[in-house]
Amino acid sequence: MTTLQKIAIGYFLALMGAASLNYIPGLTDAEGRAFGIFALDIFDDALHVASALWALAAALISHRASRMFLLIFGALYLGDGVFGFFTGYGYLDLGIFTNASEGMSFTIFRILANLPHIALGGFALLSVWKLDRA
Rank of each mutant, 00 (worst) to 15 (best):
residue 1 M to T: 14
residue 3 T to N: 10
residue 4 L to P: 12
residue 6 K to D: 10
residue 7 I to R: 05
residue 8 A to F: 05
residue 11 Y to F: 14
residue 14 A to E: 03
residue 14 A to T: 12
residue 22 N to E: 07
residue 24 I to Q: 00
residue 25 P to E: 06
residue 26 G to C: 12
residue 27 L to W: 11
residue 27 L to H: 00
residue 30 A to Q: 12
residue 31 E to R: 13
residue 34 A to F: 04
residue 36 G to T: 04
residue 37 I to P: 00
residue 37 I to M: 08
residue 43 F to N: 10
residue 44 D to H: 15
residue 44 D to Q: 14
residue 44 D to C: 09
residue 45 D to F: 00
residue 46 A to V: 11
residue 47 L to W: 11
residue 47 L to N: 07
residue 50 A to S: 15
residue 57 A to V: 11
residue 58 A to L: 07
residue 62 S to Y: 08
residue 63 H to N: 14
residue 65 A to H: 08
residue 65 A to C: 12
residue 67 R to A: 13
residue 67 R to W: 10
residue 67 R to G: 01
residue 68 M to S: 14
residue 69 F to C: 05
residue 70 L to V: 03
residue 71 L to R: 10
residue 72 I to L: 14
residue 73 F to V: 04
residue 73 F to Q: 02
residue 75 A to D: 02
residue 75 A to Y: 09
residue 76 L to I: 13
residue 77 Y to A: 11
residue 79 G to K: 03
residue 79 G to D: 02
residue 82 V to K: 02
residue 85 F to A: 08
residue 86 F to I: 10
residue 87 T to D: 06
residue 87 T to V: 07
residue 92 L to C: 02
residue 95 G to A: 12
residue 95 G to Y: 01
residue 99 N to L: 04
residue 101 S to Q: 06
residue 102 E to K: 14
residue 103 G to N: 07
residue 105 S to V: 02
residue 105 S to P: 07
residue 106 F to I: 09
residue 108 I to H: 14
residue 109 F to D: 13
residue 113 A to F: 07
residue 114 N to F: 00
residue 114 N to K: 01
residue 115 L to P: 06
residue 115 L to I: 08
residue 116 P to C: 06
residue 122 G to P: 04
residue 126 L to C: 14
residue 127 S to L: 01
residue 127 S to W: 00
residue 128 V to K: 09
residue 128 V to G: 08
residue 128 V to H: 07
residue 128 V to S: 09
residue 130 K to Q: 08
residue 130 K to P: 01
residue 131 L to E: 05
